[in-house]
Amino acid sequence: MIRSFFRLSSLLALIAAIMAGTLDSIQSVSSSTVAITSLGNHWQSLDVVSLAMAEAAVAHYIHPDAWRWVMVPVLAQPAFAVFLALALLFWMIGYRRPRFAGRFSA
Rank of each mutant, 00 (worst) to 15 (best):
residue 4 S to D: 08
residue 4 S to K: 12
residue 4 S to H: 04
residue 5 F to V: 14
residue 6 F to Q: 06
residue 8 L to D: 01
residue 8 L to N: 05
residue 9 S to Q: 05
residue 10 S to H: 14
residue 10 S to L: 11
residue 12 L to Q: 12
residue 12 L to N: 10
residue 17 A to V: 10
residue 19 M to W: 15
residue 20 A to E: 04
residue 21 G to M: 01
residue 21 G to D: 09
residue 22 T to N: 05
residue 24 D to Y: 02
residue 25 S to W: 07
residue 26 I to W: 03
residue 27 Q to Y: 14
residue 28 S to L: 14
residue 29 V to T: 06
residue 30 S to R: 11
residue 31 S to A: 11
residue 37 T to W: 06
residue 37 T to G: 00
residue 39 L to W: 05
residue 40 G to E: 15
residue 45 S to F: 15
residue 46 L to Q: 02
residue 52 A to N: 03
residue 52 A to L: 08
residue 55 E to H: 01
residue 55 E to Q: 12
residue 57 A to M: 07
residue 58 V to C: 00
residue 59 A to V: 08
residue 62 I to G: 03
residue 63 H to R: 10
residue 63 H to I: 12
residue 63 H to F: 00
residue 64 P to A: 02
residue 64 P to M: 08
residue 65 D to H: 13
residue 65 D to P: 12
residue 70 V to D: 05
residue 74 V to L: 12
residue 75 L to S: 11
residue 76 A to I: 00
residue 76 A to L: 04
residue 76 A to M: 08
residue 77 Q to N: 09
residue 77 Q to H: 07
residue 78 P to Y: 03
residue 79 A to S: 13
residue 79 A to P: 00
residue 80 F to Q: 10
residue 80 F to A: 07
residue 81 A to F: 13
residue 82 V to P: 10
residue 82 V to A: 03
residue 83 F to M: 06
residue 84 L to N: 11
residue 85 A to Q: 02
residue 86 L to A: 13
residue 87 A to S: 02
residue 90 F to S: 13
residue 90 F to N: 03
residue 91 W to G: 01
residue 91 W to T: 10
residue 92 M to R: 15
residue 93 I to V: 07
residue 93 I to W: 00
residue 95 Y to R: 08
residue 96 R to Y: 08
residue 97 R to H: 12
residue 98 P to D: 11
residue 99 R to L: 09
residue 99 R to W: 00
residue 99 R to V: 04
residue 100 F to Q: 14
residue 101 A to D: 15
residue 102 G to A: 11
residue 102 G to F: 01
residue 102 G to S: 07
residue 103 R to M: 01
residue 103 R to W: 01
residue 106 A to C: 07
residue 106 A to E: 14
